[in-house]
Amino acid sequence: DYYEVLGLQRYASPEDIKKAYHKVALKWHPDKNPENKEEAERKFKEVAEAYEVLSNDEKRDIYD
């Protein structure tokens, strides 16, 4: 669930989505996790995908 990936509720505002994305993206950035790079890359891609969908009103409506 994209909301879960970003740690958000379904009623999150666009500002909340952006803030959550930056927080979680920093947490899972591969450069910040050199000891667990493969998992970090996978999680970072999930976070980016979730943000791409939830930050676009049209894609978010379809997802919801």
Rank of each mutant, 00 (worst) to 15 (best):
D1S: 13
Y2F: 11
Y2W: 12
Y2D: 07
Y2A: 13
Y3T: 02
Y3I: 01
Y3N: 04
Y3S: 06
V5H: 04
L6Q: 03
G7Y: 00
G7D: 03
G7L: 00
L8E: 06
L8T: 11
R10D: 06
R10K: 15
R10E: 11
Y11K: 14
Y11I: 07
Y11S: 14
Y11T: 15
A12Y: 00
A12S: 10
S13E: 08
S13H: 05
P14G: 12
E15T: 06
E15V: 08
E15P: 06
D16N: 04
D16K: 04
I17K: 01
I17D: 01
I17E: 01
K19L: 12
A20I: 02
A20R: 05
A20Y: 01
Y21S: 03
Y21P: 01
H22I: 09
H22G: 13
H22W: 10
K23H: 10
K23V: 11
K23A: 15
V24Y: 14
V24N: 15
W28E: 11
H29S: 12
H29P: 04
H29G: 07
P30H: 07
P30M: 05
D31Y: 04
K32V: 09
K32M: 05
P34E: 09
P34Y: 05
E35D: 14
E35L: 04
E35T: 10
K37C: 08
K37V: 11
K37I: 11
E39P: 00
E39H: 14
E41I: 07
E41G: 11
R42T: 08
R42F: 08
R42Y: 05
K43T: 03
K43R: 12
K43N: 07
F44C: 07
F44S: 13
F44L: 14
K45M: 13
K45Y: 07
K45A: 13
E46H: 09
E46W: 02
E46Q: 10
V47D: 03
A48P: 01
E49F: 02
A50Y: 00
Y51T: 01
Y51C: 02
E52A: 12
E52K: 13
E52I: 07
V53K: 03
L54S: 02
S55W: 01
S55D: 01
S55R: 09
N56G: 04
E58S: 11
K59N: 05
K59T: 11
K59L: 09
D61K: 14
I62C: 13
I62V: 13
I62E: 15
Y63K: 14
Y63T: 06
Y63S: 04
Y63H: 12
Y63R: 05
Y63N: 06
D64L: 09
